[in-house]
Every structure is written in C-alpha cells, then in structure tokens.
Design a protein around this nucleic acid. Structure first.
Lengths: 229, 229
DNA sequence: CATTTTTGGTTTATTTTTGGTCCATTTGAG
DNA sequence: CTCAAATGGACCAAAAATAAACCAAAAATG
C-alpha cells in the first residue's frame, strides 16, 4: 500500500524501500549506496529526507554511514525464518505447490469430513460469482486451497500452506498476474475446483490428485504467459 | 460480505480490510499507511469514517497513529511456527514428507548440480559406517534429506524441509524410534538412499520419486511398529 | 605531494503534509 | 418517525519535508 501508488515518499517510505532492497539481495554486502544527493533525486525527495531514512537504517544495523566516503551495506540482520518465504520466486512457489497440493487431495479423501467439503463448496459458489473481479477471486481462491489443506486435518500441512499463502499475497509478480486474470481463465479454474471437490467427495484420491496437477499446470502456464508480457 | 467492488463501506468494514492486509503481510511492519485523506478516497468513504476505522485498529494494537506524521503498522503477523511445528504428530510429519519428498526427487533431477549429488554421496558413505549407531545415523539421515532438498535450488522448499527437520528432532516419539533402529533397518535405509541418489544421477525423476515413496513407506512402517511396542 | 572534487554533517527559515477537532447536514436501518 | 452512522467542510497545531547555504573530512586527481 505504501508503495502502491506514486505518491510523495517520506523518510520512512524510503527507508522501507532500501531495507527491502537490502534484504532481497539487490544491494549486496559492502556495496556502497549512491550519494545522498543522488538518492534524493531518484526518489524525488529532498536531501534531508533521504538523510533521515539513512539514519534510520543505520540505527537498525542495515547500513554504515562513513562521512566523506559514503553509505555502505553492512549486514542483513537475521530475519530468520520468514526470509525464505518473503524472497521466494513465483516459480519456486509453483514447484512447492506441485509437491504439496496433489498429495493434499489424497489426504483430504482420507481424513476430510462433510463440514470441510461443505466449506469448500461454498467457496466454490462464491468464486463462481466473481468472473469479473480477479482480485476478489484470487483471495477466495487462496481461501479454497487453504480450506482444502484444512480438510486433511494435518496441522503441519495446514501451517505450511498458510506460510505459502503469505508468499502468494506478498509476491508482486503473482499479484500482477491476478490482475490479468480474464473471465475465461477464471471459469476454467472454477471448473477444476469443482472437479477436485467432486473427486474428493466420491473418494477418488488419485483422480483428485490428477485434476489438481492439471489445475496447477494451468496456473503455471498462466504465470509464464504473464511473465512474457 | 467483503464487497467485491462497489458497496458502501462502513468504519468496521474498512478496519476489517486493513486488518486483513496487515496480517496477510501486504502491509509490512513499520510501513506507513497512506494519509487518512487518501484512504478516504480509495475506499470511497469520508475521512471521519476512515478515522474511526484507524482508531479501531489502534485500539486493537495493529497500528500506531502519530499525529502530524502518519499511521504505522505495529504488528508481527503471528509467528505460529512454534505452535504447528512443535505440536505436529509423527503421523502428520510422515504425511507431510509423503507429499514433499517424492516431488523433491523430481525437482532434484531438474535442478540439481554435480556438487549437490557429491554432497549427498558423501553423506551416504558416512551413513554406511553407522550401522550400529542409530542416533548418529539419524542425524546424518536428516542431513541427507536436507541435502536432497538443497539440490532442488528452491529456497522455499529448502526452508520447509528445514522446518520439518525441527519437528523430527524435537519429537519424542521419533527420537525414541531412532533409538530402536536395528542394523538391518539401517541397511535397508542406506540401500534406498543409494538407489534414490543413483536414479537422480541418471536423470530418472519418476524412478527416484517411487523409491522415495518406498523409503517413506518403510519409515512409516517402522514408526507404527515402534508405536505398538 | 598539493589541490580539487566528492561525500556526509549541520544549520536555518519556510512550506507542505498529517492527524486532531468541531459542526451542520445527509443517509439509512429499525 | 427516530437515532445512530456517515458525510463534507473548515480550521488547528504538530510533525515532516523542503531548499539553500556552508563545513570538514575522505577520496580522487595531477
């Protein structure tokens, strides 16, 4: 949201942008950042503002300011676990989902209960009303896959899918793709969701898993197509 | 509920939307949200309404309002990691590995490099000297599966396997089982590890995946057997 | 080595932005 | 109708951002 539209950037905004570039590895260890005066121009801000941002980053230990010399990336503080989640690429995400979700279908057949399936059913219904609202559709889509994981009654798997959900919502590429979803693609997704749910309800684990693979393959295609645009 | 496009949004609705964006991580910690006047326009509401929503969020601890400066996100999206990971049962763990590791074998064939396979090879060699030391064997076994994940070059998957590794080491049941590993079972594991590595080296993804499934099935049996004791 | 340029550090006066507040009016559900 | 919520506008004070000038030290130059 902060960076969503091109508004005037404040000190904290600039700090956030730089912080992100550092932890994403765009700015490497021991790299020198551009001079304050240059940063000021590139961000369209006054030098004093950039300066405030840099002092923030220094106090956080991201950066070291050497008077007369420059400002240097000194360390990315242990962001520990979530680092991998935040930096995951869309392709990594797809491969991971390919690993997990077909088997989740099988486990859903084994452990899922009526109420789980009913919840998924209502999510399907909601998605079918959203042919023209890609953003809302994507959100409900995430909820559907979450509900599917939930039906395995496997806390570990549910947690992993949740973590993955954070990637999906954070990733710019994915978010952009959501905006380019057309009605036809959404229709196809909806059909696949229905088929998966039906296969699970009729206790056909392998069929459900296979449709899920198709579904993910469809999504992967849409992803690479969006990437080429 | 959450209107897809055009619905009159009340203060509680706006609060809900923002709350969601915060816990989803779209709005990061320390991010400044847009000024009230801008939010008012983007949500199609009056400033007073947005203001009410923000005060709600502040009282909930999601956000900090600094007069003259802006409104800032102050909320660590629940680190549920310890919960789900620590409370996972051995059976949940096995199901999760069943989902992940066969596909990891396929990805290893696609993305793995010589050095990755050499590392796994040396781990195999070490395991083969540990027929009589179940504890040491289990540690190296974990390393092997970690190295296998590593060969996918997929940071997200590697991270997930790491998390799962924490379960394996923390779980009492699993640890006890390790103590009851006999030389014959270890020998069988070693053979399977070798077969998996060879299948990957010869670029046979499905064969590698299938042997991994066998391997996990073996482990699952050993688990249930230990449980009956 | 001496000199020039670059870079961060500091100060100041001024303008813009931002949340805080109040109030008369409109809207919408019970 | 009634009442609570939302609206839209105006104004305030604090905070932040700006713009311009000058300083000192590091780095680059010759």
């Amino acid at each position: 949201m902060t960076a969503s539209s091109e508004q005037k950037l404040g000190a904290t905004d600039i700090a956030a942008l730089l912080r992100r570039e550092i932890s994403k590895g765009i700015l490497h260890l021991h790299d020198r950042l551009p001079p304050e005066r240059v940063l000021a121009e590139t961000y369209g801000a006054a030098r004093g503002t950039v300066r405030k941002a840099l002092n923030l980053l220094e106090s956080e230990g991201f950066v070291e300011i050497r008077p007369g010399s420059g400002t240097y990336v000194v360390h990315m503080p242990a962001d520990t676990s979530s680092d991998a989640v935040e930096n995951a690429t869309p392709l990594e995400l797809m491969d991971t989902r390919f690993a997990l979700e077909p088997h989740i279908c099988r486990l859903s057949v084994l452990h899922g209960r009526r109420t789980d399936f009913d919840a998924m059913e209502s999510l399907c219904a909601r998605m079918e009303t959203l042919l023209d609202d890609p953003v809302a559709f994507s959100e409900v889509d995430s909820e559907f896959h979450r509900a599917l994981a939930n039906s395995t009654r496997n806390g570990l798997l549910i947690w992993i899918i949740d973590q993955i959900g954070h990637v999906r919502s954070q990733d710019d590429w994915t978010r952009m793709r959501h905006l380019t979803l057309d009605a036809m693609t959404i229709k196809q997704y909806n059909a696949q969701h229905r088929q998966i749910l039906n296969a699970i309800r009729t206790r056909e684990p392998e069929r459900a898993a296979n449709i899920m693979k198709e579904h993910l393959e469809t999504a992967r295609l849409s992803l690479t197509r969006a990437a080429e645009t």
